[in-house]
Amino acid sequence: MNKKSKNAIFYAIIVSLSALALISLILIVGFILIKGLPGITTEFLSQSPSKMGKEGGILPIIIGTLYVTLVALVIATPIGVAAAIYFNEYSKDTRSVRMIRFFTEVLAGIPSIIFGLFGFAFFVVFMGLGWSVLSGGLTLTIMILPTLIRATEESLKTVPMSYREGSLSLGATKWQTIVKVILPCCKSGVLTGLILGMGRAIGETAAVMLTIGGSMRMAESLLDPTRTMALHLYMLASEGISEEKTYATAALLIIIVLIINTIANEISRRMIKLS
């Protein structure tokens, strides 16, 4: 076979494989949207569910989803950023640091139901937080930390050494250098980590199933039980409650993830433009 036809064949393979990836994505999203969009009515968005979710809307569940995700992000961000700073700026490459790093990576690959089980044993039972927004949020915090630490660390690594030298040579302390020079360069990296973490948190079912309780009432405090959209979707589908509501919930979940990603991308783009 000559070079030219080899080239053409490889090109054809690459194109068809990427088309396959794209088509399956479009099929899934399209299928869900076509089946689900008719169910997204103002009533669906503004009312509480009734009859186990067979009727009514999902407003408390939308709020519960955002609530749990927000709790996870608010707790995870400072911890994750601090850990990344420690690994990248302070720790030397010792055995114990390599161990911690290794465990962080392992943590990222653990099935989420195991986080759920741990969250149930530790937050719900041992700490006595009960099935609540807080228990679910804390469980998701542990789950998204590795992603956040990783993304922040990667972006810390891209900050040129010359910025650190410039700052230190002016008599700035290491802390001042980190806060005033290095971190501002990492804003978009941290944000990327947050988006990835948020994507994971918002769509999580198993980890919250055992920790937030699944109540369909509006959560009024951090210690109230609630239900996330992904969990609601799982309940509706597995118990065959309502096909229409199941697809409507799925479609809404996709739309919300899409909106959050678009906003985050836009913020990230503006930040890069500014610096």
């Binding site: 040129p160 910025y163 030298e165 230190l168 002016l170 700035a172 005033k180």
Partner: peptide, 27 residues
């Protein structure tokens, strides 16, 4: 810290911070 305040340094490759001109000087 005090030493580096009294003994400044200019590097081989110019390394202004990714900030404004004003912010660079007042840093």
């Amino acid at each position: 810290i005090n030493l580096r305040k009294k003994v400044g340094m200019v590097f081989q490759k110019a390394n202004p911070f990714p900030k404004t001109i004003y912010e660079n000087i007042v840093y």
